Computed example of a mutant assay.
Amino acid sequence: MSRLDSRDVTLVEAVNMALEWEMAHDESVVVLGEDIATNGGVFRATAGLKDRFGFKRVMDTPLAENLIAGTAIGMATQGLKPVAEFQFMGFIYAGMEQIISHAARMRNRTRGRLHCPLVYRAPFGGGIHAPEHHSESTEALFTHIPGLRVVIPSSPQRAYGQLLAAIRNPDPVIFLEPKRIYRAVTQSVENNGEAIPLDTCFTLREGSDVTLISWGASIMETLEAADVLAEQGISAEVIDVCTISPLDRETLLCSVTKTGRAVIVHEACRNGGVGAEIAASIAEGAWLELKAPVARVTGYDTVMPYYRNEQAYLPQVDDILEAAKRVIAL
């Protein structure tokens, strides 16, 4: 693809485009992870990068997530901008000691002398008939850690622009890619190196009766539910949270103040989920404008089931419709 080429791409192809662009324009950017060089990663997100940039910048690592996380920190403090891939989010836990105790604290610990400009990428979420450790949505674990940004793109355009922004950020970013939509949709993406701002929500659809709030792959069902509601005379506003930490509370409160109702949709467990933090923020900031309690449509407080029960676990369009109609009826 030429430097300013524009074509329809999938989300995983957009990730590849962003990595290639930034590596071509910033020699300090390196990528590392299990099978990401020769094989191009389990989902082929890094396909072709080793051929173009060589093994010194595109590095296969041992099967050792703690090593991957720690090596990236060392690189980041010494002038590089590493993008480290965990094959699946369910494998990231072995590296959490490094991420939480060191990457997130480096700027504070050194009083600004050292920065930690790195990105930890991981495919996450269910929907591809994979085992439990390959299908988890535990993004809330990282939102509690000061010093980390947590970004979840929901489209190819967002993946391209926000991965560029994440790589250019001076602090560590957890970049979670919803693999259920890796190849489910295509969008026209201009390969121009333009970043999309982090730390902001995006209004995907204007509405006046209810605000539907979601992120990642669940945006697909949320938009579909908004279409069905429109056919029934209900105007739904759809917000893509995108950066779940730090939260853009201003955009969320502005929308809910207008509609008076909110439904939050995410496939992660309900208990302690990001939806609870959003609901609390709405209750604190828009209490007088609320016409009904905030509703949540979420996964269950169980381990992600195997593929036969996967769809029963994931929030469906009908679940969102039921919740929206319930808050509108109050």
Rank of each mutant, 00 (worst) to 15 (best):
M1H: 14
V9G: 01
S28D: 13
V31A: 08
E34C: 08
D35A: 04
I36P: 05
T38W: 03
L49Y: 04
L49Q: 07
R52D: 02
K56S: 15
M59I: 15
P62R: 09
A64C: 14
A64N: 14
E65V: 04
A72D: 10
P82Y: 11
F86H: 03
F88W: 10
F91P: 12
I92C: 11
A94P: 02
G95E: 09
N108G: 00
C116H: 05
L118N: 06
L118Y: 03
Y120H: 06
F124R: 02
F124P: 01
G126W: 03
S137G: 06
T138G: 13
A140D: 11
F142D: 07
P146I: 08
G161V: 09
L163R: 03
A166H: 07
I167V: 14
I174K: 01
K179Y: 08
T186W: 06
Q187E: 15
V189G: 07
E190S: 15
G193S: 14
E194P: 00
A195C: 07
T200K: 15
L204I: 00
R205A: 06
S218G: 01
S218N: 12
T222G: 01
A230Q: 04
E231V: 00
Q232D: 02
D240S: 00
I244K: 04
I244W: 00
S245G: 03
P246M: 09
D248P: 05
R270E: 15
I278F: 10
A280R: 14
A286Y: 03
K291A: 10
R296K: 12
V297F: 12
Y300L: 13
D301E: 06
E310I: 04
P315E: 05
I320D: 05
